[in-house]
């Protein structure tokens, strides 16, 4: 699930997603933020990518303007809505939904979040179908971090159910980390 918190690793990683910004005021001595230009100052109207967290901070201080990433643009959304199931969202952003939520929260621009909810539900329904039919594990390549978490939980539950039905839990076995430890000691 989408979480937000100072210590949440997924939240931190989602904040690292690159965002295109346009500088609105020349910032003296901040040229290092855009090493490509090779200049000392960050000039007005420069367009460059910085992590989301920095973009948000610059935008609140009115030093830069966030440009809505292409992946949330209308044409991309139209492709997504046409068939949400087969498109690889991982290629667009590993934290697609998280970034969308953050951007929506920040920009107060509700245009793209409503279709994305539809896409998320459609993809979940498809995912659940895949989980219960024990399908091709290649699907994992198309999933974002959020969906992969759901997929793995689902697969774990399915595996656990079959183990339970064959009563494999009746036999007491050593815990997995003990087995792994034993292997490690054998190698030495």
């Amino acid at each position: 699930m989408i979480k937000r918190g100072y210590w949440d690793i997924d939240d931190i990683l989602a904040d690292e997603e690159p965002i295109m910004v346009q500088v609105t005021k020349t910032i003296k001595g901040a040229g290092f933020l855009n090493p490509e230009s090779g200049e000392l100052d960050l000039n007005e109207h420069t367009r460059f990518t910085i992590p989301l967290w920095l973009a948000e901070n610059m935008a609140t201080r009115e030093l830069a303007k966030i440009e809505l990433p292409k992946i949330f643009g209308e044409s991309y959304l139209n492709i997504l809505e046409a068939d949400p199931r087969i498109i690889s969202l991982k290629d667009r952003s590993n934290y697609f939904f998280e970034v969308a939520t953050k951007l929506n929260d920040f920009l107060q621009d509700g245009k793209f979040i409503t279709p994305l909810q539809k896409v998320f539900v459609a993809r979940f329904v498809h995912l659940y179908n895949e989980i219960t039919h024990n399908s091709d594990p290649k699907i994992i390549k198309k999933l974002t971090e959020l969906e992969r978490d759901i997929y793995e939980k689902g697969m774990k539950t399915t595996r656990e159910f079959f183990d339970w039905r064959e009563r494999k839990f009746d036999i007491i076995r050593s815990a997995q980390h003990v087995v792994n430890n034993a292997k490690r000691f054998k190698l030495k």
Binding site: M1, I2, T101, N104, I113, Q117, F120, K156, F161
Partner: peptide, 22 residues
């Protein structure tokens, strides 16, 4: 219930989260 309890709440929470910002 066990089969869906790990999936559905996580999904609903995520959608709710997106809705809140909306």
């Amino acid at each position: 219930l066990q089969a869906i309890r790990r999936l559905l709440p996580a999904t609903y929470d995520s959608i709710d989260y997106m809705r809140k910002t909306e």
